[in-house]
Structures are given as C-alpha cells and as structure tokens.
C-alpha cells in the first residue's frame, strides 16, 4: 500500500463562508439566549431589591423579627410570616419525606408486576400536575371540615396548610427518590445479596445510602417548592398576623402575605412587601444552594 503523492489529495477543503457565518450566528444566538435567562433572574432580583430599599433603610434587619403589620402607622415586620412559612414547610416535609421515600422504595423494587408499577408511578407523578388552586379548594371543602370533626381545629390554620403542602410536594420527593434508587448500580444490590443481606438490609443499608445524594436533592427541591407555594397556602393558612405554637391556630406565610396585600398596597407598604419578597427569594435561593452543595459533596463520597 502506498500513499499517492500528488498535491490534489493533500489539500484540505476550507470551510465555505456560508457555513462559517451560520456557525458564528448559531453560537452568538445561543449565547444571547443563555445570558438572557441568567439576566432575567438578576434583573428580577435587582428590581425587587431596588423597590425594597425604602423599607430596608427604614426597618433594617429588625423587619424579620417584628410582628406588626400596620399600614396606617407604617409599621411593618414579617416575623409571623417567616415563622409560618418555615413551620408549614417543615411540617410538610416531616410528613412527606417518610411517605415519599416509602413509596419510592416500593415502586423501585420489584414488589409489583411491571404494568401495575408503571400505572402507579404515572399516578404519583400526575399528582404534581394538579393546579394548586384545586388543592386549595380541596383543603377548604374536604380537609378542613374533616379536621374540624377530629381535632380542635375551628378555622383555616397552620395544620391544613401544612398537610396540603405535604401532599403537593409528595410527587417531587417520590419521583426523584425513585429515580435515584433505580440508578443505584445493579452490582451493589448483588453484592449485598451475595453477602447474605436480606432485602431490607439491602434497601436500608446499601441502596438508600447509595442513593442519598438524589434523595436529598429531591427533598431540597420539594422544600423550595413548599416555601414558595402561594395559592393553596393562602386559601388554607388563615392569614392571621400572629405567631402561635398551636397547629390549630391561624397563621400566615410570606407568599400568602404578598398575594393578599399587593392589590391595595401603596407607598412604604409596597416597599415592605418587596422586602418580604426579597427575604423569601433569599430563603429559597439559600435552600437551593445548600441542596447543590450537599448533592455534589455526597456524589464525591
């Protein structure tokens, strides 16, 4: 075999001008799109921050720890809302993490015939497609009357809001945990069974730790959603400006405060609402950053 030595076979065709223009155009356009998405986030944050400046300069950090919300006297604070937001979200998590994880285990192992399993997985994921206003209506007309029969509950309160939130974030936790469990290499299952581990020992001691980064990611995503959920919470939490340790007492959340008051707000009140929005924004951002850090750290292990 020999290589031909004539010059024609040695030249490499240069790219046509048209192709080069198209290529550059594509790169420029996709860059613009990418930056505009990031830009929207920054622009939104700046806008909210800008409008919050009067309230920030007037109330400072004390805003977070003050309980009054008195537009005529221009005295504002979001302590009850911060408390209500965190309490309702964490109660929701406490309910839905064990249930969601349990469902994820059940639907990732071969307990059920595959077709039944597929239908169940689909139904669980469909739960995420229900609009939150529908959850709110269900809470008002079904859950609250039901709870009134069983508990000291008299009106919309923290408990029904937290329960409905729990149901709303259940599909997120279930779907992401299930994916994480399924993606644990088959090797590890076999290694555990091969050592004489029972199914439970394998699931609890090997599969869940191996899937923990995904599971925690799902929980954090769910928490982010719970913190910001507006409609269902506004309809169920009672919108009372108070901090009460009772689950049966009306409470409030930042998102509910914003939704309730924007229409009639003016002047410093708008600024105070923006400040509250900024706090909520910071809260969810912090949760997401922590989630990212946890996930990357756990993936390294």
């Amino acid at each position: 075999m020999s290589f031909t030595n004539n010059s024609a076979s040695r030249t490499i065709q240069s790219r046509s001008a048209k192709e080069r223009t198209l290529n550059t155009g594509f790169i420029v356009f996709s860059q613009i799109f990418a930056w505009s998405v990031a830009g929207t986030l920054i622009w939104l944050a700046c806008l909210v921050g800008w409008q919050a400046i009067p309230a920030i300069s007037k109330f400072g950090l004390g805003f977070v720890f003050t309980s009054s919300w008195n537009p005529p006297q221009e005295s504002f604070g979001v302590w009850p809302e911060v408390y209500g937001t965190l309490a309702s979200s964490f109660i929701a998590l406490a309910l839905s993490v064990p249930i969601g994880l349990g469902v994820a285990i059940f639907l990732s192992e071969d307990y059920l015939p595959t077709p039944v399993q597929r239908v169940l997985v689909f139904l669980v994921e469909l739960l995420a497609a229900i609009p939150s206003v529908v959850f709110g209506l269900w809470g008002i007309f079904v859950l609250i009357p039901f709870l009134k029969e069983l508990t000291p509950l008299k009106s919309p309160a923290l408990l029904p809001a937290a329960l409905v939130l729990g149901v709303m974030i259940l599909p997120t936790i279930t779907a992401i945990s299930r994916d994480a469990m399924i993606n644990v290499p088959q090797d590890l299952r076999q290694a555990a069974y091969g050592l004489g581990a029972t199914r439970w020992e394998t699931i609890i001691q090997i599969l869940i730790p191996a899937a923990s980064s995904g599971i925690i990611g799902g929980v954090m995503l769910a928490l982010g959603r719970a913190l910001g959920e507006t409609m269902a919470v506004t309809m169920l939490i009672g919108n009372a400006n108070q901090v009460s340790l009772s689950l049966f007492a009306p409470a409030n959340s930042i998102a509910a405060r914003l939704a309730n008051q924007f229409a009639e707000a003016s002047g410093l009140q708008v600024s105070a609402l923006m400040y509250a929005a900024l706090i909520l924004f910071g809260l969810t951002l912090a949760i997401n950053i922590i989630a990212q850090l946890l996930v990357t750290r756990l993936q390294k292990i």
Partner: peptide, 17 residues
C-alpha cells in the same frame, strides 16, 4: 442463609460506597 454459606465475588469489582 445459603448466601451466607456460599459467598460470591463478581466480574466487576463492586465495593460498597
């Protein structure tokens, strides 16, 4: 119980995380 008496080493090394 069988697997506790009869152990196994697999094709690909599969240590636990």
């Amino acid at each position: 119980q069988v697997r506790r008496k009869i152990g196994m080493v697999f094709q690909k090394p599969n240590p636990f995380p």
